[in-house]
Design a binder for these strands. Structure first.
Length: 581
RNA sequence: GCGCCCGUAGCUCAGCUGGAUAGAGCGACGGCCUCCGGAGCCGUAGGUCAGAGGUUCGAAUCCUCUCGGGCGUGCCA
């Protein structure tokens, strides 16, 4: 992959390979796309591998023959220690001192990709969390929240201008239903005492009542019409009050998760922008009447279901507001990408949204990108994994999960590190991180199996495991009682035995790029596990503080760099790295 | 019915967009501190990459079909 040329070492390799190819009489332009440097399957082969398959085609030679020629043509220099051919592959090894100097130096200088990149012209809008505030905020809502939060940090790190947007569901029928429930059964005192839980009660109560009394939905629809009329009426005041209460309630989980937004603009924000959006759709000539509703047909794009923009009763829908939001964002931010971190079950919705924009020949259509993720499943009666049914009232509130995790961490600290200062604060950090890490560990699209045992596991591939590596590194730096030595005074040849750590660190650039390109924070989660693993292994065999001065200094610099990079990587996930735990 | 997603070790997952002998964690079993943090380290066992075709010098990865699981399928979000 071309993106591997993110370090000076790779650029150097790339140039040497091209020069060698030219010397072998292969045209540079023809050769360049075939120069794909990547990590070898097995690191025993070397640090970087080049499969000579494509190049062989350009050179009209057999791959093993060309690989052999390249291996002899590229002689070692102050960066390349050795070049060897193994069948159709050319394997390169970096000079250990050059490797160490490059990686450690770049990390310490916070040079990109290890530190933040310079600003690019990328503008990324990320729509995440976006809870429907008339529904309980439970474990299922955490995914969009933490994935989006991480993507926001990742794109910032890469130099993009990022707008993190909480597109609150504070409009539409769900809100009207909540309003109706409150008007029927509501109690102000209970609402203020525990808004989230109380609204969950109301939500369940509405569901039950609507079953017995189907007319209730009609009542809710009437309230919504009244709200959407724009008049200053009871519905409007009720909406304001419930919205305020909900927002306050959501702030709790957001604070604990360390999640922030640049804009909190709910669906209601687009209330006065929908007319303009509808006009634009009409002008584009794509709006049609169907069974009393106003729709856009997308059959020519392979989508059978029309996108309904106005219901037969004249009110608007989710689609209408999302469309208005796209136009607003286009005008306000000029985004190159608009990411919607929303569950996979809403794929059709975003296909339709994008489809309507395409049909309108709006350039912004290309920027619209659904970032789907899997469901949260719970273990059902028969031991089968099934969808969480908040309707049935078995929702697990996020706070409960976080509290459980924090409490368990607290007992572990009491047992393993009883003298730890600020133990409660550290327990909060580590416990919450464990839950977040667990959610960001697997690929987005995988369903998350909610299981207390794995949720509260702190050994192996977990957040605490990575944080523990940070804590060990910090501990060594503390005990050194001297500042980290300056880079230019280091004999990097002393770090020959740290090659695995260094090579892992060097992967960071491609990992972050991939995380951004594919909207996949798990790439970074896996990186932190890999690096933490190498660190734990390294520290076991290589003592720092007791080593002779030249070795000690070199290792101290390495420890510092590893700690910094691990901290940066965790930060991109929205996870703190405590110095002690 | 149609559309989309998933299927890799007992369990939970990686596998860097087609490359070399498919890797981790948990669980099981066996080891490791007179030494900077044992939330750790090292090792053993465990695989028809759901199945069958196809493309390719080369397939867990791309294409087709089959099976299994899930999600979605005009006036909810």
């Amino acid at each position: 992959m071309q993106t591997l040329r993110v370090t000076r070492l790779h650029r150097h390799l790339h140039d040497r390979v091209l020069a060698a190819l030219e010397a072998l009489g292969i045209d540079r332009a023809a050769a360049e796309p075939g120069v794909r440097l990547g990590p070898p399957k097995n690191r025993d082969h070397g640090d970087v591998a080049l499969g000579a398959f494509q190049l062989a085609k350009a050179a009209k030679k057999a791959p093993p023959a060309l690989a052999g020629e390249l291996a002899t043509a590229i002689t070692p220099d102050d960066v390349i220690e050795s070049v060897s051919a193994a069948g159709p592959f050319v394997n390169f090894r970096f000079q250990r001192a050059a490797l160490a100097q490059e990686v450690v130096g770049a990390v310490q200088n916070e040079a990109a990709p290890y530190g933040p990149a310079e600003s690019t012209d990328q503008v990324v809008c990320i729509d995440y969390s976006s809870p429907n505030i008339a529904k309980p905020f439970h474990i299922g809502h955490m995914r969009s929240t933490v994935i989006g939060n991480s993507l926001r940090r990742i794109h910032r790190h890469l130099g993009a201008t990022v707008h993190g947007i909480n597109h609150l569901g504070d409009w539409g029928m769900p809100f009207a239903k909540m309003m109706t429930a409150y008007m029927r059964f509501g109690n102000e005192e209970q609402l203020h005492a525990s808004p989230m839980r109380y609204m969950f009660e109301l939500y369940k109560r509405y569901g039950k009542a609507a079953e017995a009394e189907p007319a209730l939905d009609e009542e809710a629809a009437a309230h919504f019409r009244a709200l959407e009329s724009g008049e200053d009426n009871e519905e409007r005041r009720m909406w304001q009050m419930l919205r305020d209460e909900s927002l306050k309630a959501f702030q709790g989980p957001y604070d604990r998760l360390g999640v922030t937004f640049d804009h909190i603009t709910g669906e209601s924000f687009f209330e006065d922008k929908m007319a303009g959006a509808m006009e634009r759709v009409t002008k584009a000539g794509v709006l049609e009447e169907s069974d009393g509703a106003e729709v856009v047909w997308l059959k020519e794009q392979g989508i059978k279901q029309p996108c309904i923009l106005r219901k037969s009763d004249g009110t608007t829908l989710y689609h209408t507001r999302d469309l208005a939001a796209v136009f607003y964002r286009e005008q306000t931010f000029s985004p190159t990408r608009i990411l919607y971190v929303v569950g996979a079950e809403q794929k059709l919705h975003f296909d339709q949204l994008k489809g309507v924009l395409k049909k309108m020949k709006e350039g912004i259509a290309d920027a619209v990108e659904h970032v789907p993720f899997g469901l949260v499943l719970s273990r059902g009666e028969a031991g089968k994994w099934e969808k969480f049914a908040s309707r049935a009232g078995n929702a697990v509130f996020l706070d409960e999960i976080l509290d459980e995790a924090v409490a368990k961490v607290r007992t572990i600290i009491a047992e393993k590190n009883p003298d730890l200062p600020d133990a409660d604060a550290v327990a909060e950090q580590v416990g919450v991180s464990a839950i977040v890490f667990n959610d960001l560990k697997a690929s987005r699209i995988k369903d998350v199996k909610f299981d207390w045992d794995s949720m509260l596991a702190f050994e192996g591939d977990t957040g605490p495991y990575v944080q523990y590596a940070c804590a060990r590194l910090s501990s060594i730096l503390r005990k050194a009682e001297t500042p980290v030595p300056a880079i230019d005074a280091i004999d990097f040849a002393q770090l020959v035995d740290a090659e695995r750590v260094l090579l892992t660190m060097m992967d960071f650039g491609t990992v972050v790029q991939r995380a951004a390109d594919q909207s996949e924070p798990s790439a970074i989660t896996n990186f932190t596990l890999a690096l933490a693993g190498e660190i734990h292994s390294y520290l076991r065999e290589h003592h720092v503080l007791g080593a002779e001065p030249a070795v000690r200094d070199a290792r101290l610099v390495l420890v510092d760099a590893a700690r910094r990079l691990l901290t940066t990587a965790l930060d991109l996930l929205g996870i703190p790295a405590p110095g002690q735990m």
